[in-house]
């Protein structure tokens, strides 16, 4: 999920061609939580900067059924210890593609 429609559509295109089945899109945290409950995806790509609440808070509300991968245009060190403490994988938006996503998911087992 990402509040920038242009980015969402390109991300869907990239991931779809790299073997991922993109089951849903959301533009804010509230919609995201509702969609995750409905669609139960294996992986949730979650932008940290959302218009209604921050991605860390949304990640806590998403249950254990889905692997959350946090994304951002900012560098991971911009978030200090919050990122490490969240326990979620992280992929920079300009580095978003199938292999990098598989790498972080693989690293988490």
């Amino acid at each position: 999920m990402d509040d920038h429609a242009g980015f969402r559509s390109w991300a869907r295109e990239v991931l779809a061609h790299e073997g991922f089945d993109v089951v849903g899109e959301a533009e804010d945290g509230r919609t995201a939580i509702r969609l995750v409950e409905e669609l139960r995806p294996e992986v949730v790509l979650l932008d940290i900067q959302l218009p209604d609440q921050d991605g860390f808070a949304v990640a806590r509300l998403i249950g254990d059924g889905s692997d959350v991968v946090l994304t951002s245009g900012r560098a991971p060190e911009d978030y200090g210890r919050r990122l490490a403490e969240s326990g979620h994988a992280f992929v920079r938006k300009d580095d978003l593609n199938g292999p990098s996503l598989e790498a972080v998911l693989g690293a988490r087992g």
Binding site: H4, G6, F7, W10, A11, E13, V14, H17, G73, K93, D94, L96, N97
Partner: peptide
Amino acid sequence: QQRLLALSLALRTARR
């Protein structure tokens, strides 16, 4: 920045 990030994905799509 969001637009430039989208651009990087778009160019990657064009290359593929």
